[in-house]
């Protein structure tokens, strides 16, 4: 069996496709077609490129309805559905809050908005403040200051589109990931066993490196996937730390849509399911979910990792997935 790998940059991260099959020429051609699907999604959904379709929506939808491409209509429809499924915890309208928290650009150093600024932000957030007309293919913003950022779902969506293209091309075994945080698979690996994806605990890894105890990564789970998808979200990565003398808090790039506050860590959520789109959005939503009352309507298996241990939020997490056993939610 032959293996073909294709890596490329998109959505400010690195995508990598690994395809298995008998004909490497066919595998390469299929991988390139899948790559073009990801690039197409990126071109339409780029928040930063002023000429992208998303930027045009953000500029014009408050004035009048904006006609949508088929791709954007499907993606916004999925976003709206997931907004309702997650009880509003996944909300792609948190874009203005990210800027206020100084978490928009990689070069931003982060800042805590004043309470009055937070009050203004909360009024701007909310996907219920837009009208998506699915039959006429238009979108209209009804709330002042509303801005969409599809960063919490576009990667998963692009991977689902890529998987569909590969399946249409007859590919039977593949692993695709975007930035190592969202992955989808087709079939199983070369040994006919599920693809295995390790999940790293960023805090344990960082701690062990700080203490110079070990350079080894701290794997906290190994997820078997056979045709499924998964996504991991964490506070770390794009974040900043503030110490007010009594406690040290890390603020991450996930905004709680109801409070307008940046989610603080350490927290890591992991969602396993059929759709990378849903996994991507749900893993973002879970970071904002209350520990004691997580949403349960998720299609798939999900759990949240905090300093107090694993908290299973939905589905049944097989113990064999976890390198350390899951615990019940903290009292």
């Amino acid at each position: 069996m032959e293996t073909v790998r294709l890596a490329f940059k998109a959505m400010a991260t690195r995508f990598e496709f690994m395809l298995l099959g008998d004909d490497p020429v066919h595998l390469r051609a299929a991988a390139e077609e899948a790559m073009r699907e990801v690039q197409r999604v990126e071109r339409n959904c780029n928040f930063y490129a002023k000429s992208s379709e998303l930027s045009r929506i953000n500029r014009e939808a408050a004035q009048s309805p904006v006609r949508l491409s088929g791709l954007m209509l499907r993606l916004l429809s999925a976003s709206e559905d997931l907004f309702h499924e997650t009880s509003g915890l996944f909300d792609p309208s948190v874009a203005p809050a990210l800027a206020s928290w100084g978490l928009r650009h990689q070069t931003d150093s982060g800042r805590i908005p004043r309470p009055d600024q937070l009050q203004t932000l909360i009024k701007q957030i909310g996907l219920d403040g837009l009208s998506l007309d699915r039959s006429n293919r238009t979108i209209r913003f009804n709330k002042p200051g509303l801005q969409l950022d599809l960063g919490g779902i576009a990667k998963g969506w692009a991977l689902d589109e890529a998987r569909m293209v590969l399946e249409e091309s007859g590919i039977e075994r593949a692993l695709l990931h975007g930035g190592t945080s969202t992955a989808v698979t087709i079939g199983s690996d070369a040994e006919d066993v599920p693809w295995k994806i390790g999940v790293e605990d960023p805090y344990l890894t960082a701690r062990s490196k700080d203490e110079d105890a070990s350079e080894e990564r701290a794997w906290i789970a190994t997820i078997p996937l056979r045709g499924g998808a998964m996504s991991v979200s964490g506070v770390q990565g794009k974040s900043f730390i503030r110490d007010d003398g009594t406690e040290t808090i890390e603020y991450g790039h996930i905004i709680h849509p109801r409070t307008g506050r940046a989610v603080s860590g350490p927290r890591l959520s992991l969602v396993v399911g059929e759709s990378a789109t849903a996994c991507d959005a749900w893993s973002t939503a879970l970071l904002a979910a209350p520990e004691q009352d997580p949403p349960v309507r998720i299609q798939g298996t999900a759990f949240l990792k905090t300093d107090s241990g694993w908290i299973q939020t939905a589905g049944r997490v097989p113990e064999t997935w976890l390198d350390r056993p899951a615990s019940a939610p903290s009292p």
Binding site: H26, E32, S169
Partner: peptide
């Protein structure tokens, strides 16, 4: 790019 298109 291979400039090749794929089909099953």
């Amino acid at each position: 790019t291979s400039w090749r298109r794929s089909s099953s």
